[in-house]
């Protein structure tokens, strides 16, 4: 009988702690730390993969980073870092690429853009993978926007859109 009382006493204390815990949790809602969203501590993890494929090209861009927003002397401050890397690969008829003289890659991000050009050397073996002229700072802050690429092979333009996917989950 005494044992039963002790048991019910322990369960009672635990129930009390659960109730206290629920109250605390209601005041501090759980964070979603693995998503690209700001959590209760002002922290945001950034991990996106942009992919896309067109008739002759497929591309990929990876963005990594973190962001913390905090208040200092009444002013909102930010601490962050970001890095990115990406490439496009020619998947069309290789003879067309082999015969080409020049490739221009233009990347557009809303109001800004960047570009790079490749002049092919006929004597050298032809590469099919090309780095993207995309800096992580171009994408940082507008993660949800697709990256618009214009691939101009000897004047012939093909548009390739790299669509973002949140891979932090």
């Amino acid at each position: 009988m005494n044992l039963q009382k002790i048991l019910f006493g322990i369960i009672g204390v635990l129930f009390f702690l659960v109730v206290v815990n629920i109250v605390i949790m209601n005041e501090n809602p759980p964070s979603q730390e693995t998503e690209n969203t700001l959590d209760d501590t002002g922290y945001k993890k950034i991990n996106y993969k942009y992919t896309g494929e067109s008739e002759h090209w497929k591309g990929e861009y990876i963005l990594e980073g973190e962001e913390i927003t905090y208040e200092s002397f009444g002013v909102l401050e930010q601490e962050y870092w970001h890095e990115g890397t990406g490439h496009v690969e020619y998947i069309g008829d290789i003879s067309k690429l082999n015969a080409a003289e020049k490739l221009d890659i233009k990347a557009e991000f809303g109001s800004s853009s960047s570009s790079m050009g490749v002049t092919f050397d006929n004597d050298a073996p032809r590469e099919t993978v090309f780095n993207l002229p995309v800096d992580s700072s171009d994408v940082f802050g507008v993660f949800e926007n697709p990256i618009e690429l214009k691939l101009i092979l000897d004047g012939e333009t093909e548009v390739l859109q790299l669509v973002p996917e949140d891979i932090s989950k």
Partner: peptide, 12 residues
């Protein structure tokens, strides 16, 4: 209950 308490995020 102990398990719930320990793993409850943002709680005690």
């Amino acid at each position: 209950l102990s398990f719930l308490l320990y793993y409850s995020e943002n709680g005690m």
